[in-house]
């Protein structure tokens, strides 16, 4: 089985990134790491290789510094790595990256393309579906469990949905799968393989080698700003309340007080009343598909 893993090097966002908003430049002392989800994708690829045999090829698009990320993943056990670079990538968004990756991956004709489902720094998760489209492959995104049967050229995956649900998706191979960080725990590379990975040559491809013009980027950056979300719509305070009461509400974080009467009585009595309310409001009996009152 030939598996291609897409790797991105990202800014470690654990210490807050302080941007100079006048020049829109990133500070020079940033710490770069392998995107965590891509590390999981590499791990998954290596496990598949161990089980079914084959080859794991890493690929990454970005400035020369990203070869460090490729070497970190090589050390985990991948067979070889390809690096793509052109200065125009710097301005581009996920669509540009996906087009370039597709151009480099297509000649390899892999059975499976693995990506992390989103990056730590940008976090758009835009590349995997766009890459699948450019390669003409079916996609399964946000995968938490993956089973591959190379003999039948089929895969089965659990895909993350909202509220902790999972969708079970089956697909033929070749396919593209983007993995969630919960899919596995990454191995720790052995010292020997770290040493080997430091010296292993990495092929670098530029636009010329790929045989295409730098693709156009449809979106443009217009502004970088300190984070200031638009305030969420909240209900205005009741103007009939006294100022003191309104200040108290402000201090409590905008919690609206509700006029409720306390229920008192024997536990049995209260339990009967509450059980009735829970039934009326459709909280009971529980329904996995639609808990809650009006479905909104």
């Amino acid at each position: 089985m030939k598996i291609v893993v897409c790797v991105k090097q990202v800014v470690d966002t654990t210490p807050p990134v302080e941007l100079d908003f006048r020049t829109s430049r990133l500070p020079g002392n940033l710490n770069y790491i392998v995107n965590p989800a891509d590390e999981n994708a590499t791990e998954e690829a290596l496990r598949l290789k161990e089980r079914h045999g084959g080859e794991v090829i890493l690929i990454s698009a970005g400035p020369p510094r990203i070869t460090r990320a490729l070497r970190a993943c090589l050390a985990m056990g991948a067979d070889r790595a390809i690096h793509i670079w052109h200065p125009a990538l710097e301005e581009g968004d996920g669509l540009v990256t996906a087009q370039l990756l597709a151009r480099a991956i297509a000649p390899l004709s892999p059975d499976l393309v693995l990506c992390g489902n989103r990056s730590l720094d940008e976090g758009t998760g835009q590349v995997p579906p766009a890459l699948a489209e450019f390669l003409g492959l079916p996609q399964i995104t946000g995968v938490t469990l993956l089973e591959v049967s190379p003999a039948e050229a089929r895969i089965m995956a659990h895909r993350k949905l909202e509220k902790g649900c999972r969708q079970v998706v089956k697909s033929g191979l070749p396919a593209l799968v983007s993995v969630d960080t919960s899919i596995n725990r990454c191995r720790y590379p052995a010292f020997r393989s770290v040493r080997w990975a430091r010296k292993e040559p990495i092929t670098t491809l530029d636009y010329e080698a790929l045989g295409i013009e730098p693709p156009d980027c449809p979106t443009h950056l217009v502004k970088l700003a300190p984070p200031r979300p638009r305030p969420k719509k909240t209900l205005t305070m009741d103007s009939s309340l006294s100022p003191e009461e309104r200040v108290r509400q402000l201090m409590s974080g905008g919690l609206a007080e509700k006029k409720t009467t306390l229920w008192e009585g024997t536990p049995e009595d209260l339990a009967t009343r509450l059980a009735r309310v829970l039934t009326q409001e459709h909280f009971f009996p529980p329904n996995a598909d639609n808990p809650g009152r009006d479905g909104h």
Binding site: L19, T219, A225
Partner: peptide
């Protein structure tokens, strides 16, 4: 004008699609 968080929420980037 589409604004999104980047770098773990420490920067807001606004993009347009002309």
């Amino acid at each position: 004008e589409m604004t999104r968080a980047a770098y773990g929420g420490s920067v807001y980037a606004t993009r347009i699609c002309p």
